[in-house]
Design a protein around this nucleic acid. Structure first.
Lengths: 125, 125
DNA sequence: TTGGATATACGAAATTCTTCGTATACATTT
DNA sequence: AAATGTATACGAAGAATTTCGTATATCCAA
């Protein structure tokens, strides 16, 4: 369980690692490169730093190192969410929910899911 | 309409400006100082930079300058929210809503509000 | 086995953000 | 009027983050 909070660039890399299991640097870099102009060694360096920080683990058995996220997506998201709510919505999670709901097209299925969750919360409370 | 995205420190100041209308630097600083150790000239400098960037406006008629936020709270929150959803939840606003709902104690009133909003969305769609 | 492609390591420049010291001017009090 | 308090301006140090050049090793194909 790492305590380091990922920077913005590190988070971009974590996203890729979360989505596509253990992969080499080159793989991460190629996805990253479609999102923004960045050199290969930059990506490499970032991932090396992340390894030092304990944000990722890597298998260095072979010449091509294989990287995998060392922190869970859910836990990281929750941490960042808490911080974001505090920083941007002055601690009001509900205000955030309202804004997110109001400004994004949610499918019927998603709305149903949310309704179900609310139902569940109401029953528990 | 400013395009600058506020940094974290700038956001802290914007929050104070949003909450307490037009105020002098000293006022902002005193609130800030209750949240973290920071020198007065640091706060001043930040607010001067924000003025340059167009994030705040100031009235320099008198010796004590009076600052006010130049960008709206709602618009800024929406911008940051979009970015946050993209960056942390891979673009899934619903995933964020679910997580925010699941991990924060929402009052009955708040849940009712959300249900009403969902109702409204469903009717419009 | 030699040349080209591709890998990691490493150092350091470049950029952005944060912090604060110091200079200077105006206001207030004594 | 002098001393003291409080303002802004400004420059630049410090810290964190991002970027990439270069060195070097390994793999693979001709």
């Amino acid at each position: 369980m790492s305590n380091s909070k990922p920077t913005e660039s590190e988070l971009e890399i974590l996203q890729i690692l979360w989505e596509h299991g253990p992969v080499p640097v080159r793989f991460v870099h190629e996805i990253l490169a479609t999102q923004k102009a960045v050199g290969y060694t930059t990506t490499l360096k970032l991932m090396q730093i992340m390894a030092e920080k304990g944000l990722v683990n890597r298998d260095t058995t072979n010449r091509t190192h294989i990287y995998v996220a060392a922190i869970s997506e859910e836990q990281t998201q929750q941490q960042l969410l808490d911080k974001f709510v505090a920083g941007t919505f002055r601690g009001s999670a509900m205000k955030l929910v309202m804004q997110a709901l109001g400004n994004n097209t949610a499918s019927k299925e998603e709305l149903d899911q949310i309704k179900a969750l609310i139902q569940k919360i109401e029953n528990e409370g």
